[in-house]
Amino acid sequence: MSKLTTALAAVWLGMQIMAGYIAAPVLFHNLPKMQAGAIAGQLFAVLSYIGIAVWAPVLAVQISKHGSRTTIWLTGSLLAGLAANQFLVAPVIEAHKTHTEHWLLTLAGGSFGMWHGISSVIFMLCAVLAVIVLRRLFTQFSR
């Protein structure tokens, strides 16, 4: 099971890099800004749900096999980042786009650009965490 979950996590990382650093720039280069943003938003939502579905079992396997505390902590942080981006930040960005209210926007304020920047940083941190965790997991297999 651990090799399967690790392989799925590696595939997800490839999808994450493809979506964020290849597909999204191509969309914004070739489509009107609003249309590209709508498509990219849907792409990132799907990617977040897949990421949660992939990384939760990775975390469960690490916990059940008494993996290193560092790997467990990094994987948990990655999952928390994916969940925060999808369930907290993305709805605020959507509220900005639709000019509607959202509790977090009311509480914290901020511009569309600020929230988009927060989302981008979380996206990048999740990719970096995935690289670190996968490196640690692949090192375990090679022993």
Rank of each mutant, 00 (worst) to 15 (best):
V58F: 08
P25N: 11
L78Y: 00
A40L: 02
M124V: 09
L88S: 06
G81D: 12
L134P: 04
L4F: 13
T100E: 11
I93A: 05
S120F: 04
L27D: 10
L47M: 12
L4A: 14
G67L: 02
G76V: 02
A38I: 04
A127D: 01
A36G: 06
T70Q: 10
C126N: 08
S142Y: 09
V128H: 03
W73Y: 11
Q42R: 13
A60T: 10
Q35T: 15
L78G: 15
L78I: 03
R136H: 14
I63F: 14
S120I: 02
L78R: 00
W12L: 13
H99S: 08
P91R: 09
K3S: 13
T106L: 12
Q86S: 15
L59M: 11
G41I: 05
F112P: 01
G109P: 12
P91H: 11
G41C: 11
H66R: 15
L78W: 00
R135Q: 13
T106M: 12
S68P: 01
I17R: 02
N30G: 12
I72K: 07
M18Q: 08
I72D: 05
F123Q: 05
S119H: 07
G41N: 05
H29D: 14
F123H: 13
V133R: 06
R69M: 14
M1R: 08
W73S: 09
I22V: 15
E94W: 02
G113V: 10
K33L: 12
I22N: 09
